[in-house]
Design a binder for these strands. Structure first.
Length: 801
RNA sequence: GGGCCGGUAGUCUAGGGGUUAUGACGUCGCCCUUACAAGGCGAAGGUCGCCAGUUCAAAUCUGGCUCGGCCCACCA
C-alpha cells in the first residue's frame, strides 16, 4: 500500500543511494548483451552545476535509461575535464597557490588531490538529477591515463608527419599570453575610430590611408591600391614615407584594396589581422614585429615603445595630429576577433607553435560527417559549415603553466627534436630527461615548456573511456552515441572526429545527439553577468529532480527551452498525479496476483488498445532520440485517458464487485496492472525516482527485476489491440464528456443521479453499463430523443453526433 | 554578407497538405464524486509573423519579405 503522500526529497535520496549500493547501473565488461556506449561529456569542474547542464545531461540520460530498458548493456562513463583554465582558477583559489609559481608536476598533483577532495561534492549534483552513469568508470582529463593517451596521440601524429612545429604569425591572446586556435575566436562588435592618415610620398603628393589600427604604423611594410583605381594611378611604384621613422615603403597594386572603402588605400602592417599574413606570404615580405607577447609595443616601434596597443592608438593619433597628418576621423562599427575566454582583442604575433596539419583532410572530415547519424539532422550543417570555413591548421600548443605537457625535448646544441618514448608516458619534459644523447652527441636538452590545447585531450574521450577496459576495447570503441549541446559542435564534436579519423580512420561514434540550451524565462541566454542564471540545486530542492527532468523532456531535441518555473510546477503535478493514480490502482489490487485473463470487457479492450498504441509510438520516438514525444504521448494518455476516463469508468466495477461476473473483475484488475506498469515504464527514463518508488512499493514482488530501470521496456502487443472496442470506448468517452458538460452547465455535482439519458448511437451497446455507472444514470436508452432527465427537470441535449 | 533554426491563444509548447489546430500555465464558472482541492468537471481565449504562388484543399509545400536566436565570414 502506498502512503498517502509522496515525499520526493526522501524518495530521491533513497533511490539514488539504492541504485549505487545495488550497482544497478554498473557496467559489466563480461556481459553477453549488446553494448551501447555513450561518450558522456566530461563537465569542467568549476564549482557548481548550471541549469543548462541539468537540461542537457537529463536529455542524455533519458536515452541511456531507455537503451538500458531495451536490453543493452550500457557503457556510460563519467569523466571530468580538468585541464583547462576553470580548473586552474578553482584550485588556485581553493589551495591558495599559483600555478605559474611552481613546477608543473607539483601543480598537477595539487590539482589531482584537490579533485579527489571536491569530486564527491561536485558529482553530487549530477547524481542528484538522476544521471545513471557508472560512477566507477571515471577519468579526469589531467590524470596520468589521459595525459598518456593525449601525449601518445601527439607522438603518433608527429611520426605520421601530421604534427609539426613552425615559427609563424598566429593568433595570440595578450591577456592570457598564449596562442589560440581558430575555434577559440569570438566576434565582438566594437565602435572605433577610422583614421584617415596622410603619408608623404616620393612624387611629392600626399596619399591618404584610412585605418582603424594607426598604432601599427611602425610595422607598415607596404601600401596597396586597387589596380583600376584611377585616383591613385600616379602613385603606383612610388614610395611613401612612414611617419616618425626614416623608412619608406612601396605603393603597389593589389585587388584586395577596395576602392569603395575608406580612401581606397590600404596599408599593410605586420600584423593587423590574418589577411596581413596572407599578403606577407603572397609578396614574400619580411615582417616587422613591433608587438611583444604582453601586448606592448617594442623598440621597433620607435618612440612608441612600451605602450599597450590601446594606449599606443591614442598616442599615435595625437602625434599624427601634431604633424597635421590627420585628414579626418570617422566613427565606425566593426567586428573584431576576441579570445572567447577572456574577451581580449587578439593580436597576431610571430611565435613558435605546434600545429596539426589538417586542412588537406577537409573532404575526409566532411565525409565523416555524412556517415554520422545526426539527431536532429539539421545540426550537421553546422559541422559542414565549420569545416568549409576552416582556414588554418589546428594550433595545439598553449603557453600555459598547467595542462598536458608536450612530450618533446630540443637539443640545446643542434636544436634537434627528441620525442619521448611511449613506455615513459606521461612525461613532463621540463623535469625529466631523454634516455639517450642527441644525434649530435649532446646531452643537454630543453624540455618543451608548452602544454597541449585542452581540446587536443578532450577530443580523445572515446578512446580514453574505452581504454579503461583494454580487454574489450574493440567492443567499446567506436562508441554508439555522442550526446552534447550545439554550442560545441565546432570544438568538441569536430575535434573528436578529427582525432578518430586521423588515428583510426573511423568515426568515434555512429550517432550524435545534439541538445539545445536552457534559456532564461524571456528566452535569453543565461549568463552570470546578466544575473539571470538559474541554479538547478535550488530548483530541485523545491520541485524535485523528477520535475526538473520532466521539464527538460519538454522541448524537442536540439531546441532551446526557456526556463519557466511554472513548467517545473507542471512536472511536480505530474509526479503527484502518478502517485495518486498508482495509489488508487494498487490499493484496489490488494491480494491480486497478476494473471492475464482470456477475456476482456469492451472498455478494458479499449484501454489496452490505446496503451499499446502509445507503447508503439513511444518506442519509435525514443529510437530516434525524440524523448519529448514519448513524454507528451505518455502524459496525455495517462492523464486524459487513463485517469480522467478509465479510472472513473471502472470505479463501480471495483467498488461493487459483487454486481459483476468474476471474469469482468479479472479483466479490470489485469488491465489496471498492465496499464499502470506500462505507463510507469514509459515514464521511467524521464522520471526515474517516482517510477522506481512505485515499482518498489508494489510491482517488484511480481516482476523479477531489482529495479524498474533494468526491467524490460514495454512491448507492442498486437493481441491486445482491438479497433472495434477502441471505437466503442471512444464513443463512450464522448458521451461521458457531454453528460459531464451537462452536469457542469446545470451546476450539478458529478455524483448527481440522472433518471435517464437517451443516446442515438448504436455502437455503444457494449459499453452502456460503463456509461450508466460512471455518470450515475439509472437507465440509458437508445433512441432519437437525445434527452437527459434528472429528478427535477428534463432537457434535450445534443449529446452524440 | 553566408548558413542554420524559429515566429502557433496573455505565457510556454505540439503538430508539419485534408473534418471543430495539441497540451500545459494563467483566466472564468461549477463541483468536497470513498486516488488526488498542489484535485475534478466544464468554459472562454488563435487572422498558426507578412505577401504571393502551387493545389480541389496550406498553419503545414514553394518563393519573397519581416522579426528573433545561434554559427560563420568580413573589409584595411
Amino acid at each position: 500500500m502506498l502512503p498517502k503522500k509522496y515525499n520526493f526529497a526522501e524518495s530521491e535520496e533513497k533511490w539514488g543511494k539504492f541504485w549505487i549500493k545495488e550497482k544497478i547501473f554498473s557496467f559489466n565488461p563480461k556481459t553477453k548483451k549488446e553494448i551501447f556506449s555513450i561518450d558522456t561529456p566530461p563537465p569542467t569542474v568549476s564549482g557548481k552545476m548550471h541549469i543548462g547542464h541539468a537540461f542537457m545531461y537529463s536529455q542524455m540520460d533519458f536515452v541511456a535509461r531507455f537503451k538500458r530498458m531495451m536490453g543493452y548493456e550500457l557503457f556510460y562513463p563519467f569523466g571530468t575535464d580538468d585541464n583547462g583554465l576553470a580548473t586552474i582558477r578553482l584550485v588556485e583559489k581553493d589551495k591558495k597557490v599559483r600555478g605559474t609559481e611552481m613546477k608543473r608536476k607539483d601543480f598537477v598533483k595539487i590539482v589531482l588531490d584537490t579533485l579527489k577532495e571536491i569530486r564527491p561534492t561536485y558529482i553530487r549534483d549530477w547524481k542528484r538529477i538522476g544521471i545513471s552513469c557508472d560512477w566507477d568508470i571515471y577519468y579526469t582529463t589531467i590524470n596520468d591515463h589521459c595525459q598518456k593517451l593525449s601525449q601518445k596521440s601527439f607522438l603518433d601524429l608527429y611520426k605520421e608527419g601530421r604534427v609539426h612545429r613552425k615559427r609563424t604569425p598566429f593568433m595570440w591572446c595578450p591577456e592570457c599570453q598564449t596562442s589560440i586556435a581558430q575555434v577559440e575566436l569570438k566576434d565582438e562588435e566594437r565602435e572605433s575610430k577610422f583614421v584617415y592618415m596622410k603619408f608623404d610620398t616620393s612624387i611629392g603628393k600626399q596619399i591618404t590611408i584610412a585605418t582603424t589600427r594607426p598604432e601599427l604604423l611602425p610595422a607598415c611594410v607596404m601600401i596597396y591600391v586597387h589596380p583600376d583605381d584611377k585616383r591613385y594611378k600616379k602613385f603606383i611604384g612610388a614610395k611613401a614615407k612612414i611617419p616618425f621613422s626614416n623608412r619608406q615603403v612601396e605603393i603597389m597594386t593589389d585587388k584586395g584594396a577596395d576602392p569603395e572603402f575608406g580612401s581606397g588605400v590600404v596599408y599593410h602592417c605586420t600584423f593587423g589581422d590574418m589577411d596581413d599574413v596572407e599578403w606577407m606570404e603572397k609578396y614574400d615580405i619580411p615582417p616587422i614585429e613591433i608587438l611583444d607577447k604582453d601586448g606592448r609595443l617594442n623598440k621597433k616601434a620607435g618612440k612608441f615603445k612600451g605602450l599597450k596597443v590601446s594606449e599606443a592608438r591614442k598616442v599615435v593619433i595625437e602625434a599624427l595630429e601634431e604633424e597635421n597628418r590627420i585628414e579626418k576621423t570617422e566613427k565606425i562599427n566593426h567586428v573584431v576577433n576576441t579570445h572567447e575566454r577572456c574577451g581580449t582583442d587578439i593580436e597576431i604575433l610571430m611565435t613558435e607553435q605546434w600545429f596539426i596539419k589538417y586542412l588537406d583532410l577537409k573532404d575526409k572530415f566532411l565525409r565523416a560527417g555524412e556517415e554520422m547519424n545526426w539527431y536532429p539532422s539539421y545540426m550537421k550543417s553546422r559541422y559542414d559549415n565549420w569545416i568549409k570555413g576552416l582556414k588554418w591548421d589546428w594550433n595545439i600548443s598553449r603557453q600555459r603553466s598547467f595542462g598536458v605537457p608536450i612530450p618533446i625535448w630540443f637539443c640545446e646544441k643542434c636544436n634537434e627534436i627528441i620525442l619521448a618514448e611511449e613506455k615513459d608516458l606521461p612525461v613532463d619534459p621540463t623535469t625529466e630527461k631523454p634516455h639517450h644523447a642527441c644525434k649530435c652527441g649532446s646531452r643537454k636538452f630543453i624540455g618543451d615548456p608548452d602544454v597541449l590545447d585542452t581540446w587536443a585531450t578532450s577530443s580523445l574521450t572515446p578512446q580514453i573511456a574505452a581504454s579503461l577496459f583494454p580487454d574489450i576495447y574493440d567492443k567499446l570503441y567506436p562508441m554508439n552515441l555522442r550526446p552534447q549541446a550545439h554550442d560545441i559542435i565546432t570544438f568538441w564534436l569536430f575535434n573528436t572526429a578529427v582525432k578518430s579519423q586521423m588515428h583510426n580512420n573511423v568515426n568515434p561514434w555512429s550517432d550524435v545527439m545534439i541538445s539545445g540550451w536552457a534559456l532564461d524565462p524571456k528566452g535569453k541566454k543565461m549568463s552570470k553577468s546578466k544575473g539571470n542564471v538559474v541554479e538547478p540545486q535550488k530548483v530541485i530542492g523545491f520541485h524535485g529532480a523528477d520535475a526538473m527532468r520532466f521539464w527538460a523532456a519538454g522541448s524537442k531535441l536540439g531546441e532551446d527551452l526557456p526556463y519557466q518555473e511554472k513548467d517545473l510546477v507542471t512536472g511536480k503535478k505530474m509526479v503527484t498525479k502518478l502517485w495518486n493514480a498508482s495509489r488508487f490502482v494498487t490499493m484496489n489490487l490488494e491480494g491480486y496476483k497478476p494473471k492475464r485473463p482470456n477475456k476482456f470487457t469492451e472498455i478494458d479492450k479499449w484501454l489496452l488498445t490505446k496503451i499499446n498504441d502509445i507503447v508503439k509510438v513511444s518506442t519509435e520516438h525514443f529510437d530516434r532520440y525524440e524523448y519529448s514525444k514519448t513524454r507528451a504521448e505518455t502524459e496525455k494518455f495517462f492523464w486524459k485517458v487513463f485517469c480522467d476516463y478509465y479510472l472513473e469508468i471502472i470505479k463501480d466495477r471495483i467498488y461493487n464487485q459483487k454486481n459483476y461476473e468474476k471474469w469482468e473483475i479479472e479483466s479490470v484488475k489485469y488491465t489496471l496492472y498492465y496499464t499502470l506498469l506500462s505507463v510507469l515504464k514509459l515514464s521511467a527514463p524521464i522520471m526515474p525516482y517516482i517510477t522506481e518508488d512505485i515499482y518498489q512499493h508494489y510491482f517488484k514482488k511480481f516482476e523479477k527485476h531489482k529495479s524498474i530501470h533494468i526491467s524490460e521496456w514495454p512491448k507492442y502487443d498486437t493481441s491486445l489491440s482491438d479497433k472495434k472496442a477502441e471505437k466503442a470506448g471512444d464513443t463512450a468517452t464522448d458521451i461521458i464528456a457531454s453528460i459531464r458538460k451537462f452536469k457542469s452547465d446545470s451546476a450539478l455535482s458529478m455524483a448527481e443521479p440522472l433518471r435517464y439519458v437517451t443516446i442515438d448511437s448504436a455502437d455503444v451497446k457494449l459499453v452502456l453499463k460503463d456509461i450508466e455507472k460512471t455518470m450515475k444514470i439509472k437507465k440509458v436508452k437508445i433512441g432519437k430523443a437525445k434527452e437527459i432527465e434528472t429528478e427535477n427537470f428534463k432537457v434535450k441535449l445534443d449529446v452524440m453526433k
